[in-house]
Write a protein that binds this DNA or RNA. Structure first.
Lengths: 207, 207
DNA sequence: AACACTATTGACCAAGTGGGTCAATAGGAT
DNA sequence: ATCCTATTGACCCACTTGGTCAATAGTGTT
């Protein structure tokens, strides 16, 4: 169904994907403008509608395509046998970083889907989202080794603190990239800093 | 200049303020629709433009009015002599909670201002924002007692972890309020939970 | 050169929405 | 009755929307 689009050279594909995700993420389905997308992607209006029948089809193409990418990457790069929470969390962060470098708008797009209120798409979004996200989180909770935690620590709360810290750190880095122009963010440096945060939390929560 | 508006009964004022902040926060200045605002507030289009000359004036009224409220409340309820980081942070959280109960959209509105890109308002926003936010954060960093921290702890990072945890927790509670209908959130319960998070972090970082 | 075939453009369309206006009405006070 | 203000919502025109389509550019084959 998207054979024409998928046979484009990858660079152009990605330009279109990123432009569309950015617009949908910022404005929501209804207010997102296909005009803005084509301007940002540097293609003509006609071309976008040559590849995708209409706005809705484009939206769900992005949804499915990006979901697939996410699942693939997690499957490939996260070791499901690893039982240490911090190592698992770190692996997830690496996956996120890698994807972010290719599709900087993907996570904003994903977040925006949760907040979507448009009557046009909300039903179908609801349907597709359920299964996937559930299986994804069940996988993750899988079998973490909680015996390493100090006695008396509420592991659920500890997990939240770790997640929120990573989220906050990620957001901070994202803003840094946006302000300091293009990809001259020192990734090594950022990872080192992230590890320092994780070390602090490991010392705080592990025996 | 806004005498007419300010002499309205407070309930109606707040309905209008909340509706406008919500719309601006969700869509950004340009795409925010005054039609949506009046629909949400339950007033007529004409009335809104009876109180405010135009959209821009409304926007900056909200900006100034909410800034003032925030500063007042912090001035009143945060003890500047208190040198313990956790106590100070908790006081700030209480201020935030109180404001949130009256203006649930205020913090979303504030966040949206930072991301505003509209040519119409961006310059003036930039100008007003600077002074205020700077003085606000200088005040806060004021003179916290860092001697209570464990040796070897990076206090800057510790502060970030605390801030991100509070942010994450706050966001979680906000979502809970939105989904579980109106104000039947148990505030006592929420505060207790927040204190448990703060206790965990105090144990982690203090000697 | 001539032809075929696809990729790509952008002017164009009808429908809808935007901010803002204003004559008309409702309500209350005197 | 009269005056004054608060409030309404139909209306205006400019602009944007998703989507179309005839025309053009580009590429390869003969």
């Amino acid at each position: 169904m998207f054979a024409k689009f998928l046979s484009l050279d990858k660079e152009k594909q990605d330009r279109i994907i990123n432009a569309a995700m950015k617009e949908f993420a910022q404005k929501g389905y209804d207010k997102a403008s296909t005009n803005e997308m084509v301007k940002e992607a540097g293609i003509s209006k006609g071309l976008l509608f040559h590849y995708f029948q209409n706005k809705k089809q484009l939206y769900f193409f992005l949804y499915d395509h990006m979901t697939q990418l996410l699942v693939e990457q997690i499957e490939e790069k996260v070791d499901k046998e690893e039982r240490d929470l911090f190592i698992r969390v770190r692996q997830m962060a690496l996956v996120k970083l890698e994807i972010f470098q290719m599709y900087p708008e993907l996570f904003n797009f994903a977040k925006s889907i949760f907040m979507e209120t448009s009557a046009e798409v909300i039903h179908e979004v609801g349907q597709r989202g359920k299964e996937l996200l559930e299986s994804y989180f069940k996988d993750f909770k899988g079998d973490i080794d909680f015996s390493k935690f100090k006695k008396g620590i509420d592991v659920h709360k500890a997990f939240n603190i770790i997640a929120w810290t990573l989220e906050g750190f990620g957001f901070q880095q994202q803003k840094k990239v946006q302000s300091l122009s293009i990809e001259n963010l020192d990734i090594e440096e950022a990872l080192k800093e992230m590890d320092e945060y994780l070390d602090m939390l490991r010392n705080a929560f592990y025996e």
